[in-house]
Each structure stands twice: as C-alpha cells, then as structure tokens.
C-alpha cells in the first residue's frame, strides 16, 4: 500500500476511535430526534439547524483540536524527518473531517426522511452547493484556530468558546423567529448564520440569498489565507 493510502487508512481508524467524532454525529441527531417529534411535515427550520450544528462542531471543535494536537505532540515534525511530507497528513485530515461532516449530515437526512417523515430539500444541487460552501467557511475558521492555538487543549478551548456565541447568533440555540431582529441580522454575517439561513432558503424552495453565499465564500477564502499565513509546523 502506498504511504498516502496507509496514512488515510490509519487516520480513519484514529478518527473513529476518537470519542469526539461520535459526539459530533450524535449531538445533532439527538437534537433532531428530541425536537423532531413536535414538527409538522412542512417544517423548514429543524433540519437546517441540526445540519449547521453538525458542521459547526466538526469545524470549530473536532478538526482544530486534531490538527493542533498533531503539532503539539511533534507528529508533524517527526513526519518531516521521513520521505513523507507533513502536509500530506494535513490534507488527509481535512478530507477525513469532510467525510465525517458528510456522514453526520447523511445520518440527519436519513433519520429525518424515514423515521420523522420530514421535508427534504427539493433542489439537491443547490443543497450540495450550500453545504460545500458552508463547510468550507467553517473549516477555514477551524484551520485558523489550529494555526494559532499553542496546543490541542487550547484549540479545543477556543473552539468551544467560539462555538456558543456563533451558534447563538446563527439561530442554533433557538429559532430565529424568536430572536431579536438585530441579532438575526448580525448572525447572517457570520459563517454559521449564513449557512443556516441559506439551508433554510433551500428547504423553503427558494434560491439562497447571494449575499449569504458571498459571506460564506468570503470567510472560506480570507480566513483560509490567514490560517496558511499563521500556520506553524512546530
């Protein structure tokens, strides 16, 4: 097996063994099931909320903690003494974290579509575009946390600290209909808020607001560049 294939296989095992991975799948599912019993078949709020929760947890918490821990433990530096580039490990990690985000989202859609009989997005293509854009913007923030955090523990702390205000502004703690208008407006300029609102647009069958898509794209590009700029290998 080639080094990259082996690295992917081993990193997949490690991701599955990490309890945090399970949480990022289980927590949104739990929210979906608890509130899912009281939603009507026309609900367009709950699934966008739970998908945004799932992506927020992977991007802000799981991914930066994994990457910062690898640097803290000297694993990236150790790799740079072998014929394999340490960047390969980062690429493999990013791909696997994206697969985990997909799996979490897939589980939500499957449970919602079968057990709960909830509405699924009519336009799959728009949904995929919004999903990719939203995930990219959240991963960019995760990469920046990984770049700046001195240790895995610190990355974890920053991630958790950022998650709650972002989740609140994004309307993940309570539906936006029950929030002050000004906070909802501010939330639309955060990546998680733009993501949830775009998803809701998709669920309602309307085209997502281009401003929201622009917000996500801007975060994805600008924050990724900052992360690359500040990233340290050791």
């Amino acid at each position: 097996m080639s080094a990259t294939a082996k690295l992917t296989a081993v990193e997949s095992k490690l991701l599955v063994r990490e309890p945090g991975s399970l949480f990022t799948v289980v927590i949104p599912l739990f929210v979906l099931i608890v509130f899912g019993s009281s939603i009507g078949p026309d609900d367009t709020t709950l699934l966008p909320m739970t998908i945004a929760i799932a992506i927020g947890l992977v991007g802000l918490y799981l991914m930066p903690t994994a990457l910062a821990t690898y640097r803290e433990k000297g694993i990236l530096r150790r790799l740079s003494t072998t014929p394999v580039r340490p960047a390969s490990l980062l690429v493999v990690q990013l791909i696997l974290q994206f697969v985990l985000a997909l799996a979490s989202c897939g589980a939500l859609l499957a449970v919602a579509g079968t057990v709960l009989g909830a509405r699924l997005p009519a336009n799959a293509l728009t949904f995929i575009a919004v999903f990719v854009l939203g995930t990219a913007s959240m991963f960019a923030i995760g990469l920046l946390i990984a770049a700046l955090a001195p240790s895995g523990r610190a990355a974890n702390g920053i991630g958790v600290l950022l998650y709650f205000p972002m989740a609140y502004l994004a309307g993940l703690m309570q539906p936006v209909s029950q929030m002050p208008a000004i906070l909802v407006r501010i939330g639309e300029f955060t990546p998680l808020g733009a993501f949830r609102q775009s998803l809701q647009d998709v669920w309602e069958g309307t085209a997502p607001d281009p401003v929201l898509l622009g917000v996500m794209a801007a975060y994805a590009v600008v924050v990724s560049i900052a992360a690359a700029r500040f990233f340290r290998w050791e």
Partner: peptide, 25 residues
Amino acid sequence: VQLQHTDLPDNLKVWEALDLYASFY
C-alpha cells in the same frame, strides 16, 4: 530519527505505528 519530545497519537496501536512508518520508505 528519534526526536526529543515526540509522541504518537494516543489511540495508535504499536503495530499500526510500525506498519505506517514502514510504508513511508
């Protein structure tokens, strides 16, 4: 190379570490 202050991922098994690093060469 054995570096000062290096660890491996907590959940990596002994054989997996050797198998993985062998694949690099």
